[in-house]
Every structure is written in C-alpha cells, then in structure tokens.
Simulated assay, not measured.
Amino acid sequence: MAATCALAGVAHAQSARDYISIVGSSTVYPFSTTVAEHFGKANSKFKTPKVESTGTGGGLKLFCGGVGVQYPDMTNASRKIKSSEVENCAKNGVKEIVEVKIGYDGIVVASSKKTKPMSLTRKDLWLALAKEIPEPGTGKLVANPLKTWKDVNPELPAQKIEVLGPPPTSGTRDAFVELVMDEGCKDFPAIKDLAKSDDKKAKAACGAIREDGAYIEAGENDNLIVNKLVSNLNALGIFGFSFLDENLDKIQGETIDGVPPNFENIASGKYPVSRPLFFYVKKAHVAVIPGMKEYIAEFTSEKAAGNEGYLADKGLIPLPPAERKQVAADANSLKTMTP
C-alpha cells in the first residue's frame, strides 16, 4: 500500500519533472554528462538529463532521501554503495535499486608539466599525508612533522608537501584511503603492533589524513584542481584518470610503485590505484520519469561503454567484454540489488 502511494506520488509529480535527474560522483560526472548529451541529441522526444556533481557520498544521500519527483532518479558513484547507505535508502522507501557497473578508473597523483615528475610509492604518500606517523626510535604515533617530500624520502626533492585532493564526501577520497593510505601504512611495525591489539584503531590511524595544511580539500570540482596545478608548480593533485587524460598538455601523472598511470596499465590491472565506477537507478521512478530506460540502454551500449566507445575516448577504462555484456543485460532488465 505504502509503495503504491509512493509511486502514485511520482506519477502525480510527473508533470512537474519531464527530465532525468542525476547526482553523484565528480569522477563519473564527465562520463554521465557525455552520455546525457548523446542521449539528448539522439532522442528528440526526451529532454537531456540534468547531471549534478555532488560527490559520491552526497549523491547517495540525496538519492536515498525518498521516492518522488523531489528526489534524484539516479546517482553516480566512484565506489560501491555501502550497506549503511542501502539501509538508509530502505528506511526512506527506496527499496529497489539497480546497480550498474560502467568501467574502471585510476586515481592519479598529478602535477604541472612544467615540473620534474616524481616517482612515488604508496608508503611515501602515506608518510606525506597521514595525520599521525610513527616516531623514529620509539614507534609511537605522533602528529605528522614532515614538511617536505625529502623528509618523506631522501630520494625525493626538498619541495613542500602540498596536495590538493577530494573532501570526505567524495568516493575518490574513500578509494584513495583504501587503495593508497591503507596499503601504504601496512609495512610499519608500529601499525602492525597496533593492529594486533586494536585493529579498529590501526585502521583509523592508516586512513586519517592530516589537517595542518599539507593536504588541502579542494571540493568536488576536479577541473578546479587541474587549474590550480597549472598555477602552482609545487602542488600535487588527486583525481580520476579521465581528468589527467583530458589535460595531458598541461599536467602529468606521477608514477606510483613504479607504474605510470596510463590507459593500458589501468586496463591490465598493473596500476595499483584503480577502482570500479557505478551508477545506481531508482527502479520506482523508471515507469514514470520519461527516458530512464533509454538512458540506461545508451550508457550500457557498445557505442558508449565498449572498447571503441565514446566513453573510452573520455578516459573510461571499459569492462572486459563478457562482464560488459552481462552488466548491460542486467541493467536493461532492471535487475535489482539483492539485500
């Protein structure tokens, strides 16, 4: 009964909104807007979807707010939806969610092309960006005193640590913590010892990013970080590979653990900092918001998401062919996530 009322609410509001509303990840944003533009041009009976960059966490919060025209129809995500977010969705009546995996992306650490590139390890990045690090000699965790990259590693330049990166609401930040910070701290005996006595505390120590100015939260606009790197030759920036790929005339990606961030290395799995990308669909809206099925079909088509698709030109790393075919079949049949 409640579901029927909610759907009736969407149907009643249909006259108030005749376009698809999409929120979420700044990393998926360029891919989503490209699909929206192609979709708008190819389908004269549907309006071009409205895509907003709110960050993965922010997008899922809006998406899970409820069923009805005032809530988004889809949300982009640069990480998988968390169980707590699924629970929040269900609590607000959003019970049927379609998960669509669109491809892979690498998280890059980039700098201006006018500077000499650095060869970094995940251990270097953890030491540079962690809130607390082990004190030499005692192993006790202390507030991070390191000021330059040379302090981190004698082989790196005596350049001030200044990294522009995503805020806590960003899926890129979540993935960076998981793939870089959590991995970079593993070899320190102090962290290993802490993990034996209090695993939760050790995980928190690994993932906590310093707040003393060395790491600067630069919002959800990754193009803004690119522009800041061009004007600030000392700074490094953290964002998705597609933003590097589109600005290779101005910026360069730093090598991480000996592997440069390029299309081939991310596609093959050699590059250590890569993650899957998704979008999520509110099934309750599909029957009443015009064009949702057609947009899903466009996004999962070979011409968009295939090896030679227009999203690969934008920097998306396509899924392997068999997985791509399965994802498209599940998405187009509106197969919902199992609880």
Score class of each variant (00 low, 15 high):
residue 190 A to D: 09
residue 298 E to P: 00
residue 179 L to H: 13
residue 155 E to Q: 15
residue 331 A to W: 01
residue 48 T to A: 02
residue 176 F to G: 00
residue 126 W to R: 00
residue 174 D to N: 06
residue 319 L to N: 05
residue 195 A to C: 12
residue 276 P to F: 04
residue 213 G to D: 01
residue 330 D to V: 00
residue 93 G to H: 09
residue 130 A to T: 03
residue 116 K to H: 11
residue 176 F to V: 01
residue 259 V to C: 04
residue 170 S to L: 06
residue 282 K to A: 15
residue 207 G to S: 15
residue 279 F to Y: 15
residue 202 A to C: 12
residue 13 A to E: 15
residue 274 S to Y: 15
residue 27 T to C: 07
residue 108 V to D: 09
residue 138 T to L: 03
residue 173 R to W: 06
residue 309 G to C: 04
residue 238 I to A: 02
residue 308 E to P: 03
residue 322 A to M: 06
residue 208 A to L: 01
residue 236 L to M: 06
residue 21 S to Q: 14
residue 261 P to K: 09
residue 260 P to A: 15
residue 183 E to N: 09
residue 179 L to D: 11
residue 73 D to T: 10
residue 217 E to A: 05
residue 157 P to A: 06
residue 128 A to N: 08
residue 181 M to S: 03
residue 266 I to F: 00
residue 131 K to E: 08
residue 273 V to Y: 12
residue 12 H to N: 11
residue 135 E to D: 10
residue 274 S to E: 13
residue 157 P to T: 11
residue 292 M to Y: 05
residue 115 T to I: 09
residue 222 D to H: 10
residue 241 F to Q: 10
residue 97 I to C: 02
residue 170 S to Q: 09
residue 197 S to L: 08
residue 125 L to Y: 13
residue 256 I to A: 04
residue 223 N to L: 13
residue 120 L to S: 05
residue 83 S to Y: 08
residue 87 E to M: 12
residue 26 S to W: 01
residue 319 L to A: 05
residue 131 K to C: 00
residue 24 G to F: 07
residue 39 F to S: 10
residue 233 L to G: 02
residue 43 N to E: 13
residue 117 P to I: 11
residue 270 K to E: 12
residue 45 K to Y: 10
residue 183 E to I: 08
residue 261 P to C: 09
residue 225 I to M: 07
residue 56 T to H: 06
residue 15 S to T: 08
residue 289 I to C: 13
residue 300 T to L: 06
residue 208 A to H: 01
residue 319 L to E: 06
residue 169 T to S: 14
residue 202 A to K: 05
